[in-house]
Simulated scan of single mutants.
Amino acid sequence: MKKFLFADLDDTLFQTLEKCATRDALEPAAYYSNGSICSYTTAAQRAFFAFASEGMTVIPTTARSLDAFRRVELGFTSYVVLNFGGVILQPDGTIDRDWQGQMHALMTAALPGLQQLASRIDAWADKTGYGGRARLVEDAGTPFFIVIKDPDKVALNLERVEREAVLPWIADEGRDYCVHRNGNNLAILPRALDKAEAVRYVTERLRREHGDIVTFGMGDSRSDARFMADCDYAIIPRRTQLAKLTVEAL
């Protein structure tokens, strides 16, 4: 029976230098568009990836865009889930057009709400003197979500943005949208954009191709929990947001 691991990337299989618990035996894993190193793997992460790759097929399941994924140097050979589930790559690297057509229709319908919220966030920033701005993330010709990063990389500043500018809008007008905040990333997504839906789609494809399969889900964030819950087994790296909410809390 074939085994497949749906794995988040950032803060799961690698992380930025600032988030590395130790600086020993680090190796580059991902790069910025200018060619400088973005993220690193530890020796333990490389050992885990080698172990997983020997017994199962690893399927990246990430918020990264197509361009950002192409700057990851780990080596994958199967399906890929990008943009929180908005884009699926087939094993040959081409975009799954059936899935893309579905998502494009859903995201186009959600775009006016994202634009409205982005304007609200920027107006709040102007009023309060906050230095961050809302950015609409688009990929493969489709708008997907809004992201705000604190210019000073202070996570608590994003908590204020969420509390004062985002949550009141969601409560009043944006009930079809949800918030994902982890570290220096605050993202607002249409509820129709969900890694779990993309993982279900790919899982059904894999079952048609291989018959009975076993699935594993791995991620660091509470937003990963939804797709991990649909897998047969879940793997949570320690010292992550999801670990703090689950096994470490117990």
Results as ranks from 00 to 15, higher is better:
T108R: 12
E138W: 09
Y130H: 11
A140D: 10
I146T: 06
V154D: 15
T128I: 11
L111F: 08
P143W: 11
R135I: 13
G141P: 07
Y79K: 04
R97C: 01
E73I: 04
M107A: 02
G85E: 01
D98Q: 12
L82D: 09
G75E: 01
P112K: 11
F145T: 06
K149M: 14
A109F: 02
D122H: 05
L106D: 04
Q100Y: 01
L111S: 06
L136E: 03
V147C: 12
N83W: 02
V147A: 13
P112G: 11
I88R: 00
V80H: 01
I95D: 05
Y130E: 05
G132V: 07
V154P: 02
V137C: 03
V87L: 10
Q116F: 06
P112Y: 11
I88T: 05
E159L: 14
K127V: 12
I148D: 01
G93M: 01
G93Q: 03
I95P: 03
G86Y: 00
S78H: 08
I146W: 00
A134K: 02
R160E: 12
V80I: 07
S78A: 06
N157Q: 13
R133A: 07
T108P: 02
L158E: 12
A105M: 12
T77A: 00
T128C: 07
D98K: 11
A109N: 02
L114T: 14
D96P: 11
L117T: 15
S78L: 01
L156C: 12
P151K: 05
E159D: 15
T108Y: 10
D152T: 10
F84V: 01
A109I: 07
R135N: 10
N83I: 14
V147T: 15
A123R: 13
S78M: 02
Y79F: 14
L136P: 06
V80A: 01
W124A: 04
D126Q: 02
I148M: 14
P151D: 08
R133Q: 06
Q90M: 07
D139E: 11
R160V: 15
I88E: 01
D126T: 00
D150K: 06
L136N: 05
G129N: 05
G113E: 10
A118R: 10
Q102S: 07
E159Y: 13
T77M: 00
A140K: 03
F76A: 09
A105V: 15
Y79H: 13
I146Q: 02
T108Q: 13
G129H: 03
G75M: 00
K127A: 15
A123V: 09
L136Y: 04
V87H: 04
P91H: 04
P151M: 08
Q90G: 01
N83E: 14
V81M: 00
F144Y: 10
P112V: 14
T77Q: 00
L89R: 02
G132I: 05
D139K: 08
K127F: 14
G101A: 09
T108E: 13
I121C: 05
G132S: 13
K149Q: 14
A134C: 09
A134N: 04
G141E: 05
I148Y: 09
L82I: 12
V81L: 00
Q100K: 03
G129T: 08
E138T: 15
A105C: 11
L156D: 15
L156Q: 14
V80T: 08
L156S: 14
T77E: 02
L111I: 08
L136F: 05
Q90H: 02
D96I: 13
T77S: 02
A109Q: 06
